[in-house]
Design a protein around this nucleic acid. Sequence first.
DNA 1: TAAACAATTAAACAATCGTTTAATTGTTAT
DNA 2: ATAACAATTAAACGATTGTTTAATTGTTTA
Lengths: 126, 126
Amino acid sequence: MTKLPHDHGEHPEDIIPLFENGEHFLMLSELFRQFSDGNRIRLFWILCHCEECVINLSAMMNMSSPAISHHLKQLKSAGLITGRRNGKEVYYRAADTPVVKALHDAIRELSELSCPGGCLIPEEKK
Amino acid sequence: MTKLPHDHGEHPEDIIPLFENGEHFLMLSELFRQFSDGNRIRLFWILCHCEECVINLSAMMNMSSPAISHHLKQLKSAGLITGRRNGKEVYYRAADTPVVKALHDAIRELSELSCPGGCLIPEEKK
DNA sequence: TAAACAATTAAACAATCGTTTAATTGTTAT
DNA sequence: ATAACAATTAAACGATTGTTTAATTGTTTA
């Protein structure tokens, strides 16, 4: 255990080692960073509930397709969505992984807490 | 229901309204943004498990106190931590709210998924 | 009061981020 | 091949972010 400048008489021994693994938190932050932009959460949330092409996503989000492409690329390289080409179009949807499920549930829970009974309508109905 | 450029024959009617409430996702993104920085997640995680002064947090995180103060200010204005002055020092800890509990659990779950049985040691022992 | 320590604030800086516009690649149909 | 459409990439831009250094505000003690 590293000695701290001030001794406030707390810190059970087994908590100290926790404070040293910075890389792990960096890894987590790369996940959370995906949702630090409102448009990107919304895009992810849409793709949790349907599979769509870029043009339609642009229309839903009221954004240009390069902008959508840019966000899709980030979500994809974070492993949160997948894309499959079908003819001229590429269909995107949320990846089927435990991390994606956990993030979906976190969004739903935080939504429910900050806007009880309300903002994410389709989820509540089930 | 707004008509989309391409009709892929999906989208049950009750999913459509969901795609229009952008402000709600913006609100969520302000929460997630707090954790888009590795140092800030780590700081929050520490403060979920103990109450500490800025000097000790600086030592734990190996960062300057202005840098720590800066992150504390953000976490505080997001409602995630509280601070109380005691003499020359100010002690910070995680706020006691449902949102904080949900975020704590999300961090723990994502940690467990990406590093099974391992990285956040003290939490696993209970 | 003055000195010492804790914490915050201010100013400056490089780095990152989200969006736009324009150009490019990939695919299908004529 | 050519034209039309979907999607991505590239370059540029303003805006935001995290850190540093220096100055300032609070509080205690000598």
